[in-house]
């Protein structure tokens, strides 16, 4: 009886060099997919996440982003306002997001 179990040694293992090297994007994490930078994204997410009808106020925003300078937070808010992602509600310190998802 032949117990010849010849493993098919078909093709030599191709080492595909050149392709599929992950993590080769020289990471500038300043521009995630939607064209906003990191600060802007965080601000937008916080505002989106706020359940209050009048929106999130700037103080809350600041206290939740304490690792960031106030100026950048303010800048991000301004930017998001300009782009139409957020808008001010009861006063200039309360913001809601337009993308209601």
């Amino acid at each position: 009886s032949k117990a010849h179990n010849q493993a098919s040694v078909g093709r030599p293992s191709i080492s595909n060099s050149g392709m599929g090297e992950p993590g080769n994007y020289s990471g500038n994490n300043f521009m995630p997919a939607n064209g906003l930078n990191v600060v802007q994204n965080q601000v937008l997410n916080l505002i989106k996440a706020c359940p209050r009808p009048e929106g999130l106020n700037f103080q809350d925003l600041r206290s939740q982003l304490q690792h960031m300078p106030v100026a950048s937070v303010k800048q991000a808010v301004d930017f998001l306002c300009n782009e139409g992602h957020i808008y001010s509600t009861v006063d200039d310190d309360h913001f809601k997001s337009t993308d209601a998802e």
Partner: peptide, 20 residues
Amino acid sequence: LVRIQRNKAAALLRLAARNV
């Protein structure tokens, strides 16, 4: 408040203009 509505409308317009 009218103001809120107006701001929201304006914001939506800006967003729409962006996405064209």
